[in-house]
Simulated assay, not measured.
Amino acid sequence: MDADPRAGLAERIAGEITLSDDPGATLRKWRTDFDVSQTALADELDVSSSVVSDYESGRRESPGIALVSRLVNALLDIDERRSGEHIRQYARVLSAGFDSDVVLDLREYPASVELTALYDTVDATEIVSGDRDRITGHTVIDSINAITRLSGDGFYRLYGQSTSRVLGFTNVSRGESPLVALRVANPTPSAVLLHGLTPDDLWEHAPDLAQRDGFSLAVTEMDLEEMLTALREHA
């Protein structure tokens, strides 16, 4: 884990922007993830908002390393003034032993919340009701990266402080792989949320597995960044 979470996050963001085939789109992704407007970022850099817009749209040629560094540090400076939540989130994921492209979000709630209320927040449709109706945290996982890179112990660490949580899986086609993986890597969570699926898309055996293991199973088609923002605000 990075001794300095800010430095580690800065290095990750700068690397993604610099190596991206579309640096402007990558910059826009990080800016919106930090919930920073083009105007706020421009003010931090002491430039006009059209400059930021031009870089994000590709109307200006790709920013050099020095400018990327300024852009990244401006985002982090804004985050720190706002309480540093994104920097702390990065530290939480790394402290659990994960890369941030495996675990997209991992949070413990200060108090338990109703599962149905969380589902409403992310426009989820519950397919199977579970044995527990309240949760105390969530973990959102990139399904492909998790399955290809995590050991059984790695899956166990996805639960953070408690299995009383929602495990959300992105990058799924039918939900078969994460549900089979969970059967191998007991214990099971309170709920599983599959992102990007409709009820009709779901693997036909998924409801049976959820019922057998007693967890709630739900699907949502909400935009990924909107879903992550909604989960963070709900927590």
Rank of each mutant, 00 (worst) to 15 (best):
S112I: 08
R165N: 09
V102S: 02
D99T: 08
A191C: 08
L115S: 13
V172R: 05
Y90H: 09
T139Y: 03
S164M: 07
T148E: 15
S177T: 15
T170M: 08
A146Q: 06
E176N: 14
A124G: 06
L94W: 11
T139M: 02
L179Y: 08
S143K: 06
D120S: 11
L94H: 15
D123E: 14
G152W: 04
V166R: 00
G160D: 04
D131F: 05
L94T: 12
D120N: 11
D101T: 04
Y156I: 10
G175T: 06
L115R: 10
L193A: 10
V180S: 08
T163Y: 05
R183V: 13
V192I: 15
A146K: 04
E126P: 13
P187C: 09
F169K: 05
T170V: 09
E108T: 10
D99C: 02
S95M: 02
A181W: 08
L115F: 12
N171K: 10
S143R: 10
R183D: 15
R174A: 14
V166K: 00
P187Y: 03
E108H: 08
D105R: 01
A191N: 08
Q89L: 13
T139S: 02
D123G: 09
G175P: 04
A91S: 08
D153K: 03
G97H: 01
N145E: 11
I141M: 05
Y90L: 01
G137S: 04
L158A: 07
S129N: 11
N186T: 15
S143T: 14
I147E: 13
V102C: 02
Q161K: 12
V113G: 03
R107T: 03
L106D: 01
F169M: 10
S100P: 11
T125N: 14
P178T: 09
V93M: 01
R174F: 14
R157P: 06
R157I: 01
D153P: 00
D105P: 00
T139K: 00
V172S: 06
A124P: 05
A191L: 05
G154D: 02
Y90D: 11
D99R: 07
P189G: 12
D120A: 10
E176A: 15
S112T: 11
R165D: 07
P110A: 06
N171G: 12
R92K: 01
S164K: 12
V172E: 07
S129L: 12
L194G: 04
T125L: 07
F169Y: 10
V103F: 00
T125W: 07
S100D: 15
L94M: 07
R92V: 00
R132N: 12
T139F: 00
L115C: 12
S173M: 12
E108F: 07
R165A: 10
E114I: 11
T136R: 14
D133S: 15
D153Q: 08
N186F: 14
N171Q: 12
A117W: 03
V180T: 15
D120F: 01
F155M: 00
A185M: 10
T148L: 13
G168A: 09
V102Y: 00
I144L: 15
A181N: 09
A185F: 09
L182W: 13
L179T: 12
R134E: 09
D105I: 00
L193M: 08
D123M: 13
